[in-house]
Design a protein around this nucleic acid. Sequence first.
DNA 1: AAGCTACGGGG
DNA 2: GTGTACGTAGCTT
Length: 804
Amino acid sequence: MAEEKVKIEFYPLDIDYDSKGVISLFGKRVNGRKIIVRDNGFKFHFYILGENLDDIRKRLEFIELPNVNYQVLRTEMCKMNFFDKPVDALKVYVNHPAAARYIQQEFDGIQIKEADINLGKKYLIEKNITPLFLCAAEGYLTRIKNVEVLENAKVNAVEDKIVENLKIFAVDIEVYGFTGSFENVKEPIISIAIKGDGFDKVLTWREFSGKPDYAEILENESEMLKRFVEIIKEDMPDYIVGYYSDGFDFPYLKARADKLNVRLNLGLDNSELKVRYGIGNKARIIGIPHIDVCKFVKTTMDESLKLDAYDLNSVSKELLKESKHEMTLEEINNAWDNHDLEKLCKYNLQDAYLCLEIFKKIKENLHELVRLIGISPFELARLSYGQLVENYLIKRASEFNEIIENKPPNHEIAERRLDTYQGAFVMEPKPGLYDDVVMLDYRSLYPSIIVSKNISPSTLNKNKGNKTPAILIGNKENVYYFDDNRKAFIPSIIQEIITRRQRIKEILRNDPDDPILKARSYALKTLANSAYGMFGFFGARYYSRECAESITAFGRDCIQKTIERAREDGFNVVYSDTDSIALVLGDKHLKDAEGFLARVNKELPEFMELEFERYYSRGIFVGKKGNTRGAKKKYALIDGKGNFKIVGFETVRKDWSLIAREVQKRVLETILREGRHENALVYVKEMIAKINNKEIENKKMVILTQLKMDIDEYRQIGPHVAVAKKLREQGFEVRSGSLIRFIIQDGKGMIRDKAVIPEMCKKGCYDSEYYVNNQVIPSVQKIFEIFDVNLEDSENEQKSLGEF
DNA sequence: AAGCTACGGGG
DNA sequence: GTGTACGTAGCTT
């Protein structure tokens, strides 16, 4: 180790800690080089609540814990708050959070708090360090391989200056004949694209003609994986991003690397890629934040995008106005078989390019959330709504002298999950096609309720304060009260978030395109909106069913009153969901809707506001199947510029044939564009005739369904299980996770008896009746019911016409 | 009608 | 430090 002490400045990008409680900050120096800063001087603390704290304190001074690795370093008595009530607490400093577990075992009847807060998180809070923002460190410089390490470092935040010139690499892989499983994967990775600014690379392992400059051909798949690792280690990106890369690319890379005995030691500290499979899966590269762009967009940007589908193409079209190159799975496999990889390389690189560009668009949003909440970008990009605000509360708690409540134990989570309550009001729409639809919505409805009613577990009261509307609990009506005399910690923080956002919006009024302020405003909005989710989330520290159901009760009351008022003013309210209402103008004009808005806002309490969301020239609201009442959350709209917004229709699901999805989409768009259904009906009839005349290609008839269990576990044999059995008989390996493709063929018996592998189905041998009656008609039936057109009748008519 | 099973993202 | 999201719909029994 070097002797001389050095002082450096750096931006932390990632954080980790080891079993000894040594913190590693992985960052980028101001000179651009990577550095690992190790701090072994952090003392973790937690609190003990209970009786006889002085006695406990004395015993703790001399205690030897059963596990000698863990020690008590220091204790002190302090006056704190817990759920906004003053408490005496014993603050205990230890060398590692795991020590708390042993202390809990030594003392009966004590409550240990905050020992379940991640060590790294606590470090950042205590040191007031925000990832991505400038820090200084003093320590001894060494290196691991080609990365500088600062040992025994003292670290402190310097100023509110965010990292710049980030080097971002987007990664995308292509696979030959993927079956859907990550266990014992036999199908190779055929190419890997890496895209950065001014950096284009596609790795593959088969020669082909027309090789672009950016393509590099390796000996075999193993060599390709090794080259991938080498590139990452040489170029050392600050971010690695992918699309659905937590769920596909990195798990697959890991699976193949394991199989081929290749080490994916991508970590800045040379550690291996860590992958957690299943729900909540994530791929972690220590030291280099990996962001699954799809996951972040879906969970955190959902509010502003409101897309019906989050595949790469849809998101690219929405955010970039660019598309994926077209290439089917079959074409990808054929390209590999035929050594014809030019198009594949372009396709692969384009996907990586789109992912990179999407990330650049949403980067500020991620960074503003990091800045607010103060956790690493890797962690932040994977937080659910409820966890966002929880982490923020943890960060802010000390200002309120608050001790943070523990995470619930598993048995309590299980109980909470069963404890359901009434949610938001969703109006059943009157099915129909409407002209001039105006959407209005409440700005941050739930957070504003939390603030104006002072909702918090600590203010929940038996009989005085802010009274909720009647809530049905079990079979009797009940009300809750929330103390309105004292400000509680949670509503205070939410109020501050709302106020900060209002101030930023003020500034934005003069400079509406400032990207940072826009992102900041959005981050604050996201944070405020997640407070309700936290109360209702069974895994949350501050879960409170009473708070959650009070919020929704106030919300229902508010939106229902708004609907009534709109009706009194002569508007036709066709739909409403949670915090929004859809008005049909009819004889009225936009001005009238604006007037209504102004009148409502005049009467609202301080933090609440109804806003003009958007004007749509037309909208379709459809009914539920076999039900004359409207379906919830199922509508399609077209705005003045011809942009469609399709919500809740099956147009995107792969367990529907392409023909059904195509027809449904085209029908919705035709009716919205033309304002009448006649042409759409002609189109459907044409398509039905084409199906009946066997004019549709087989590939549009393919249905994809994944096996979720091994074949023999199925108690109920659906079509995909029947096909899987046939595949097994033919010697194909089929197991849980396999994706089964099939076509329903002409024949007798149940649907499963007619399901065959697409390759077995000769041209035109598909079961027209099935595709007409079970695919195409059901996909558009509900739409045509609006116009009193029953497709089954017209289909019979068509048939009889055809027979003559 | 009830029970079972699938969808999302990726290839 | 861990979990099979969750609301909706088709097919079989």
